[in-house]
Nucleic acid binder design. Structure first.
Lengths: 340, 340
DNA sequence: GATGAAAGTGTGCACGGGCACACAAGAGAA
DNA sequence: TTCTCTTGTGTGCCCGTGCACACTTTCATC
């Protein structure tokens, strides 16, 4: 592997001159610059990551993370990923600040301002899909602060990258599991959807519906909304089941899974019901072990915590952009036998 | 984060002395050593990875990889992972040598000797489960050459770590999919097993059988052996299906999947057959898209290529041992909707 | 013709750790 | 006493990169 020193020797100049050319810091004779660029290209020069990281320690980087509020156990697993990466980055003189906010654009913007005041050099955020937030992200991008979205994305903004599930595909995969478990029998599905403010919920439903349309013997009976509260979910699911005795499958696109399952159990309809959910929180595991939930689709929460920090650190320390803009986590099907 | 320099200043000695203590290189006054160790512990000293890697460049590390022979498309994905990591390690002055051998212990031992002659500092291998090979691994371990197994493991050896699937669990997961797709109907399963020399094949069958035993309405009709050849597999599957017209599910624990599926198609029995396989080679994808195979269980081949090299490099460059001995890749269920 | 600015270039240090070598102090032998 | 050997310690350089600063050369201005 070529080094700056080698390029300098070949070009007959000093390391400093090569450095100025490669980092576009000016004050170099155009002819010399061209020669250096040619040599660098010929040797396929790539800066040594260990050297870059070592030199970056002087920057004393601070990374900010903004997640949705407490009480959502899914994010505990995301935080586990953050903590792990935080530990790893600590020895590079890089620290992490976590803030948790409600599903509210104003709170998110305020959290960003707070992080900037605390000296954050980059921000990872699970955003609402709101234009005002997109504008804010563009603003701080122009000010040199990179942003990575995690878990759910925001449309039309200058965020560096997104880390999370391909929601459309994971909705379609839920439909595929319904298809496989149905064999050729008639299936009547009730959908329990999530907040329409969050991109990942709406996309999941879209992917599910599109894939279900191809199956003649599978019909969606009704779609209801829920708002992550298990007791609200319990009541709404109860009403849905009473209204449609023909329902033999449920698709939970967001939270409220536990309440919904309890309602199915209360009505003694678990045995003939196919239930597909998302994520793998403790209550969901419990319902899988009891054979109430057939399968749950996970989205690597640990990676959703660690990878955004990795992208931000790499960008800030070495200037390297992430390979892809969309860093999809695996569409991870879990059943009783492969839980954990 | 503490550095050697900081510890040295606090202890009133020089960097060299601290270095000798931390790396147990002797020639230090016992009292001074104790004092240094205390300070290091109090500051929770962990060496800076960037510094270590930079210093390790002088070692000019060489990593050897031994994989099963050409013609097995699964290993192409493993090699993709190796190539990626090789590229990453190139700038740390670390190179990779790949050798491919038959499923044969003598060839494997010969390949190890060749790699050592070529100056390899560490070896990754997908081994046969043979005592002679285990002895060889122990020998080179004593000589300071670490070994990591990948894809399939070897019992009772001093290999540093294993990277691959939890076969028992993935067999059980295959059974779980059978369970879910059966609902409450009777299922008669034919198993197409793989070579008994390879640990991962035998363990998969064990996990499958154990999980199936719990399901009253699912029975294993017959288990046949195949040896990865699609034409042999075609004939054997044909005979199995003719012998047992009641078979409505097939479990392929190893190779020969494509030949088996072609036989099912030739007999017009695909529509009512539930087929579960392993891995995601092109021919398997084709059969999933044609609704012949219901689901396939993957084992992150890319990770099986990259992670062993990561473990070896980290160990050789920084002295850090892998966190776990068993680095299980995900039991990754794929259906039509989440292929790729 | 001295002064100053501007453009272009080289050098030195920092970042953290490994390791070779130099060097000091003390003990034992000639 | 002088020489040698041992034990313990400090120093300098290397790994690759970034960046501040000092230096040279050229050209325009007073």
């Amino acid at each position: 592997m070529a080094t700056i020193k080698e390029i300098a020797d070949l070009a007959g100049v000093s390391r400093g001159t090569v450095d100025r050319v490669l980092n576009k810091r000016g004050s170099v004779n155009p002819q010399t610059a061209e020669k250096i660029l040619e040599i660098a290209q010929a040797l396929d020069y790539k800066p040594n990551r260990a050297g870059l990281v070592l030199a970056a320690q002087k920057k004393n980087l601070k990374l900010g993370v903004i997640l949705f509020g407490e009480g959502n156990p899914f994010f505990d697993d995301v935080i586990a990923g953050i903590r792990r990466k935080e530990e790893e980055l600590a020895c590079y003189n890089c620290s992490v600040i976590i803030k948790r906010v409600a599903v509210d654009t104003d709170e998110q913007i305020r959290a960003i301002d707070e992080l900037l005041k605390e000296g954050a050099n980059g921000i990872a955020i699970s955003p609402t899909n709101d234009k005002r937030l997109a504008t804010k992200i563009d603003e701080i991008y122009e000010a040199g602060i990179p942003v990575v979205t995690l878990n759910t994305d925001i449309k039309n903004s200058k965020r560096l990258a997104f880390v999370g599930s391909n929601y459309y595909q994971s909705g379609a995969t839920a439909a595929g599991l319904m298809r496989l478990m149905a064999k050729n029998e008639a299936v009547h599905i009730g959908i329990i959807a999530g907040s329409s403010e969050i991109l990942c919920h709406t996309e999941r439903i879209a992917g599910f519906q599109h894939a279900i349309e191809k199956c003649e013997h599978i019909k969606i009976v009704e779609t209801i909304m829920n708002f992550d509260d298990d007791f609200v979910s319990y009541d709404m699911t109860s009403q849905l089941l009473k209204k449609h005795p023909e329902i033999n499958a449920l698709f939970f696109a967001a939270g409220g899974v536990y309440g919904g399952c309890r309602s199915v159990l209360a009505q003694n309809r678990a045995k003939d019901m196919t239930i597909i959910t998302f994520d793998q929180v403790d209550t969901t595991k419990e319902m899988i072990m009891k054979d109430v939930i057939s399968a749950t689709i996970c989205q690597e929460p640990f990676v959703q915590g660690s990878r955004p920090l990795d992208i931000l650190f790499t960008y800030l320390a070495t200037g390297e952009l992430p390979e892809q803009e969309y860093n999809y986590t695996a569409v991870d099907i879990r059943i009783k036998e492969n839980l954990d």
